[in-house]
């Protein structure tokens, strides 16, 4: 690190974050359609990363099936906008609703499994949703179907205007996801989850119902994933089971990004997703090697620093960039309030 003092490094990071936000806000004037399309992809992948991180990094639900809800969102959006003739703008929140509804039966199965079994269980559930999507009449069966031109044109008659609208939708979604997740993590429930992650006994002392908190988180992610699915459909202008329910694109990449960036922080998913796009810009001609490199990188990172690149940066920074941090003081206070339930025992 070239910075002489931690506060200077902090300042640089804050500036980078603010600069990034400014660029995102001004993007419609700064970039052409192609640039906006890449930024839209960045924002949707960021939403997916934030959601996976909420589950895996805080709620102890390591899922490899979140592509299910992306695909459900995509298919629901298509169903409402193209088949039912609902206003395409209204079809987007309806897609979120369908994803949320689908999450309820999924939960019944997922929450009966633990740990690694849970992970593969979510994959089985996602596989069922994908196979079912391929059987739906009107949705093009196994090969999928294109979005009708009329639906696409509802978001702008000329391609440039459409790119801008879709970009702004993605920006809005990412902003809402980030802020609401941040608020969730700062709430009593978030404090309880963080405390559980760091020390299970302390969480008990906090009196947060952990099972209920985990269920809330699982249901929380579904509509956001569904919204991302709708925006992805708008951008790709087509749905199909293998693309809309792609485990590689919507789950594996996302896991790698979060792990490389830093799991269990808010900065990590942002950093990891940004890095993913930088790497992709430089290494896209490597084809499948690109995936292999990402996989190897994430394994190396987690073996060296389980808290990812943000964990490495955090060693020189005095605090979090996006402070979820009053949690520590609150957790400590709660522990002090019930000291008889939390006494560190030295090993005998």
């Amino acid at each position: 690190m070239a910075f002489r003092s931690p506060s200077l490094a902090m300042l640089a990071c804050r500036l980078a974050l603010l600069g990034g936000i400014a660029v995102l806000l001004l993007a419609p004037w700064l970039f052409d359609s192609e640039g906006l399309a890449v930024l839209t992809q960045f924002l949707t992948l960021l939403v997916l990363a934030l959601m996976w991180n909420l589950l895996a990094g805080y709620a102890d639900i390591i899922t490899v099936g979140q592509h299910a809800f992306v695909g459900i969102g995509a298919y629901a959006f298509y169903g409402f906008a193209a088949l039912a003739g609902v206003n395409p703008y209204a079809a987007i929140p309806l897609a979120a609703l369908v994803a949320l509804v689908a999450a309820v039966p999924a939960m019944a199965i997922v929450f009966r499994l633990r740990a690694a079994y849970l992970a593969v269980g979510t994959w089985v559930v996602a596989q069922v949703f994908m196979l079912l999507a391929g059987k739906l009449p009107g949705f093009g069966f196994g090969s999928g179907v294109s979005l009708p031109i009329a639906v696409a044109q509802a978001f702008g008659t000329d391609p440039a205007g459409r790119y801008t609208t879709i970009y702004l939708l993605a920006l809005g979604l990412a902003a809402v996801t980030l802020i609401s997740t941040w608020l969730l993590l700062r709430s009593r429930i978030g404090i309880g989850l963080t405390a559980m992650r760091d020390n299970e006994e302390a969480a008990g002392a906090l009196g947060v119902n952990i099972v209920r908190a985990r269920i809330l988180c699982f249901l929380w992610t579904a509509p956001f994933l569904g919204l991302a699915g709708a925006i992805i459909t708008l951008q790709n202008l087509r749905i199909s089971p293998p693309a809309s329910f792609s485990i590689i694109d919507w789950t594996v990449f996302v896991i790698f990004n979060v792990v490389i960036g830093g799991i269990g922080t808010l900065e990590g998913p942002i950093l990891g997703t940004a890095l993913f796009f930088v790497l992709r810009a430089y290494f896209s001609d490597l084809g499948t090697w690109h995936l292999i490199i990402l996989g190897v990188l994430s394994i190396v990172v987690i073996l060296i620093e389980p808290r990812g690149l943000w964990g490495l940066l955090r060693r020189v920074l005095p605090g979090d960039l996006i402070p979820v941090s009053h949690r520590r003081a609150a957790a400590a206070g709660a522990v002090r309030a019930a000291p008889e339930r939390f006494e560190p025992q030295p090993p005998a």
Binding site: A56, I62, V64, A115, A116, A119, V252, I255, V259, I263, G295, S298, I299, I302, L303, P306
Partner: peptide, 9 residues
């Protein structure tokens, strides 16, 4: 869970 999952993934 995460490390074995990630390595085998």
């Amino acid at each position: 869970v995460l490390l074995p999952l990630l390595i085998t993934f």
